[in-house]
Amino acid sequence: MLSDLDIINGCKEGRESAYKALIDQYASRLMATALRYLRHKAAAEDAVQECYIRVFQSIHKYDHKDQLYPWLNKICVNQCLKELRNKVISMQPDGLLEVSEIPENQMPEGYEDAMQLALNNLPEVYRLVFNLNVADGYAHAEIAALLGITESTSRVYLTRARTILKSYLIKLNNTGYVSGVS
């Protein structure tokens, strides 16, 4: 397993093995990130491929100051948002998701899976803001720039997303789910 420095230097020198190592070591993590945003496997795979193409084109400018994975992850997130921009993202959230709206046969068995399902069913823009802030650590100013909204709107969306998820958690408890989180 090559170190980040070996991979970067190898890529800068044009060694094919270094490029391949870059894919072998990080593709699965980037795929998880892409799935979190795009939710469809085929679209996530396309995003990961596009992400790697952009990485290949710009790795010679990489300056070793960052760790490699956060840089890759940022490019992957940008690529996913670019994919999403091509689709219609409703900026008017649909309202609170009801537990009863999830079909019986799709109800997950575990507590965490249920929460994940609730997260995936959040209004698109709420879900994006939540993922960007909580999962990937973006600041509201950065989110605002990426999504073309104001910083305060980003804060409001995150608060609403949390409110919905908390409400969903209450409903889950009321319907007999037991928290798996200690």
Binding site: K20, A27, M31, A32, L35, R36, A44, V48, N131, A135
Partner: peptide
């Protein structure tokens, strides 16, 4: 979980 999450992907295909 998000920080360490991995998902299956065919790296050969990506390559």
């Amino acid at each position: 979980q998000a920080a360490n999450e991995k998902a299956d992907i065919n790296t050969g295909n990506v390559w």
